[in-house]
Amino acid sequence: MSQLFAIIFKYRVFLVFILLELVAAALIVNNNTYQRSVILSSSNTVVGGIYNTTSNIEQYFYLTEVNEDLLNENALLRKQIELYQVAGVSDSIDTKNTLSPLFYGMSDTIAYDFIPARVINNSVYRSANYITLNKGRKDGIVEGMGIMTKDGVVGQVKSVSNHFATCYSLLHRDMAVSSELKKNGALCTVTWNTEDPTRASANYLPLHLDINVGDTITTSGFNTVYPEGVMLGVVTEAEKTPSERFWLVTIDVSVDFSKLHHVYVSKSLFRTEKDSLESMDEQ
C-alpha cells in the first residue's frame, strides 16, 4: 500500500497533468450543455463589463461608417412606408417582394419585435465564432432569439446574463438556419463551411430545381427565430455532382461580419404559442 502511495507521489505531476487535461476535455465536449451557465461565457458581468468599456471607446472610431449605415437604412424604411401607404390605397402592389424583412408579419398583426443592441465583442476567424451584445435579460432578450442587421442574418442568442448576451455567430460550425430559395420557396438549410467568413453553403436543395448564380437565399420563417424573408446571401456557385442527391450551393454571405457594430435582436411574439402547439402535434 505504501508503495502504491510512493508511486502516486512520484508521478503526481503527471497525474495532475492528466486530470487537468481531462477537465479541459470535458469542458470542450460539453460546451453546448453549458448554454445556461453564463459564468463561463463572455456575457458574465466582469467580462461583459470589460468588453463594454473597451467598445465604448472603440465606437468613436467608426461613427462615420455607422452614421452612413443608419442613413441608408432610414432611406430604405422611408421608401417602404411610402410603399405601404400606396399599398393601403390600391391593393395591387406585391408587398412581400419589395418590403424589408423588418416589416414582415406586420401586414396582419405584429409577429416580431426588434431590440436594438450594440456588438461589444466579435470574432470571425475561428471555427466557432461568438458575438457578445450589450443587452441582456433586463432588456427582454432570452436564449434562442435571432440576431440580424438590415443586411441579413447575423446569429442566434446562446446565453444571457442580466446586461449582456453571448450569441452564436452565423460563422459557427454548429449554426444551421432554416432558409428558402427566394424565387420559388424551396426549403434549404444554410450552414457555414468554417473556412471563409464571407462564404456559406445552402444544403438540401433537390436536384430537380433550377438554381442559377445570383439567386437569393432568405430565411424561411418556419421557426420562430427570424422573420420570413431575412436575407442570407446570394448564390455564387451551384454545382451538380452525380454522387450527391442535392445541389452543392455556395452563397456569398450578405452581412460583412468584420464590420459588425449595431444589430437587431428579433423577438417572436408568438414563440411560446407556436412552439407549444407544435410540441403538442408531436405527442
Partner: peptide, 18 residues
C-alpha cells in the same frame, strides 16, 4: 472565458505547462 472558447486554451496551456 474572454474568447468564448471554453476548454480550448485551458487544454493547450496545461499541455504547455507540462
Amino acid at each position: 472565458i474572454f474568447y468564448d472558447s471554453i476548454g480550448i486554451h485551458t487544454a493547450s496551456c496545461v499541455f504547455l505547462a507540462f
